[in-house]
C-alpha cells in the first residue's frame, strides 16, 4: 500500500517534470509538438507480386530514425523467392536480404514543422540465398538429348542503390510514401555457370543494373517529444 502510494507519487512528479520541460520549450509554432523516435515500416509494393509476377513471394520491413537533423540511417530487411522461373527446366531461388544506408531530407527547413519529407539516399545491399535448377536437358539432335543432375548453389549477392522518395505524414506518426531505386550489382559473376534468375532484394541477376519501387507504410514510435 505504502509502496503503491510512493510509486504514484514518483510517477506524478515525473509527469509534472515532463510537463514543465515541455512548457519551458520556447514556442516555435507546430515544432513544439514534434516527436522523435524510430520508425518501423513495411513495403506494400512486395504484395504487388501477387498480380505482376505470381511466381514471386516477397516481404520487406524497414527501420529508420532521424538521429541527426535531416539524416535518417535506414535498415531494410526482407525475404524474396521465385519458383518456376526457368522456361524448359525447373528453377527456384530464395533467400534473405538486408540493405544498410541513409536518407537525406531535401525538404526546405521551413516545411519541417510538418513531418513530410523528400529524400535522397544510398544503400548497400547484401543477399544470402540459394538457387537450384532441375530437369536440365542438353539438346542434341544427333547424339540424343542428355539429362543432367540437378544443380544447386549457395550464393551471396552485393549491390548498391540510389534511392529517392517522398513520405507524407497522414495521421500523427503514421507515414505513407514511396521510393524509386536505381540498383547497381557489384558481383554479377557470382555464379558464372547459372546466372541467378532472382537475387533476393536486388532483382534479376541477368541485369547488372536494375530499378526498384517501394511503397512504404510506416509508424513512428514517439519516444521523444521536442
Amino acid at each position: 500500500m505504502l509502496n503503491c502510494l510512493r510509486m504514484k507519487n514518483i510517477s506524478g512528479y515525473f509527469s509534472e517534470l515532463l510537463l514543465l520541460l515541455l512548457l519551458a520549450q520556447p514556442a516555435r509554432g507546430q515544432d513544439t509538438l514534434r516527436t522523435y523516435g524510430p520508425r518501423i515500416g513495411i513495403d506494400l509494393a512486395r504484395f504487388g507480386y501477387l498480380f505482376t509476377d505470381p511466381r514471386q513471394v516477397g516481404a520487406e520491413f524497414s527501420l529508420d530514425a532521424e538521429i541527426y537533423p535531416d539524416i535518417y540511417p535506414v535498415v531494410e530487411a526482407g525475404y524474396n523467392s521465385i519458383s518456376g522461373g526457368g522456361g524448359s527446366f525447373d528453377y527456384a531461388s530464395s533467400g534473405m536480404y538486408a540493405r544498410l544506408g541513409a536518407d537525406y531530407n531535401l525538404l526546405p527547413a521551413k516545411e519541417k514543422s510538418i513531418h513530410h519529407s523528400i529524400t535522397a539516399g544510398i544503400r548497400y545491399g547484401v543477399s544470402f540465398f540459394s538457387h537450384r535448377a532441375g530437369r536440365i536437358v542438353i539438346q542434341s539432335d544427333y547424339w540424343g538429348d542428355y539429362m543432367l543432375d540437378s544443380y544447386s548453389r549457395k550464393l551471396t549477392g552485393h549491390w548498391l542503390e540510389l534511392a529517392g522518395g517522398v513520405k507524407t505524414e497522414l495521421a500523427a506518426n503514421l507515414f505513407l510514401g514511396w521510393s524509386v531505386r536505381y540498383k547497381i550489382l557489384i558481383n554479377p559473376e557470382m555464379d558464372p555457370q547459372v546466372t541467378p534468375r532472382l537475387v533476393p532484394g536486388y532483382g534479376p541477376g541477368t541485369g547488372q543494373r536494375g530499378f526498384g519501387f517501394s511503397y512504404h507504410l510506416m509508424y513512428k514510435i514517439p519516444l521523444l517529444k521536442k
Partner: peptide, 14 residues
C-alpha cells in the same frame, strides 16, 4: 563436358 546456362528462354547448353 560442362553445362552452362545460355539464357532462361534458351535453357542450358554444353
Amino acid at each position: 563436358n560442362e553445362a552452362y546456362l545460355i539464357s532462361y528462354t534458351c535453357g542450358f547448353a554444353m
